[in-house]
Design a protein around this nucleic acid. Sequence first.
DNA 1: AGCCAGGCCCATT
DNA 2: AATGGGCATGGC
Length: 276
Amino acid sequence: MFYQNDAIIVDANYFDAKAILECGQLFRYGKTQEGYFVISGDKRCLITPCEEGYKLNSDDIEYFNNYFDLDRDYAAIIERLKQLPYMQKPCEYGKGIRILSQQPYETLISFIISANNHIPRIKAIIERLCLTLGKKCNGYYAFPTAEAMASKDPDFYAKLGAGYRAAYLAKTARAVADGTVDLQSLYRLDTKAASATLKSLMGVGQKVADCILLFAYRKTDLFPVDTWVKKIYSDMFGNLPSDNIVRNKLIDIYKQDAGYAQQYLFYYKRETKLTL
DNA sequence: AGCCAGGCCCATT
DNA sequence: AATGGGCATGGC
């Protein structure tokens, strides 16, 4: 990896653009003629294949250096995980995944929308949200602020197609905008305390809280349990207890790396549909 | 056509 | 604390 003015060149070995974008962490991405684009908050990054791997371009390349977690040694993480049960094939398959550092508010709203929903529809709802309430940038729209979203009623979000999540969006945006919950303060809390705060927000249960803590706050001693993880658990143990028991069991197996393990397992299962 | 999707809220027990 | 019904929408 090295810097070149407003660009970073990354080695393709532990940076797989398709895997990073399509492993379900983020929803604002797409293809360009040359490669891919990602939008985070009010910033954009272009990702184009090159001889060494990929070239990342942005007006704020330092931001995306942190966003893509480029200073971390993923080879070491994978070495640790491969010692643990069921991780050989998922780690090979998703070797180029990286856990992102996304914006907390954007991640909060995005994963409220994600509940009981398909990824293509989640992406479409979020794009309409940005188009109608986000700041116009050069060639794209920023993710809206809590203040912008707090000014709208549930009916507005229903018309965006958010379904029964419309009321959650309006209420949670207001709670953030009026300071009832301070998202910045959660970086300093441990997983359990931060999780309790997030779950006080309307539309945030255990699974959504886990996704926010993993994909925005980089906490990894957790395990988001969704329908795909339930399939994975059934493959592993041949039964399916309650979500909370599934979560605790999987955290017990993968410990501090549970969040990473979950992401490799999720991507492997969802892409291949293979039995573990 | 019907099932399912990165689940949550709420009432009941 | 644990369980179960209801839920908007649209991809496949």
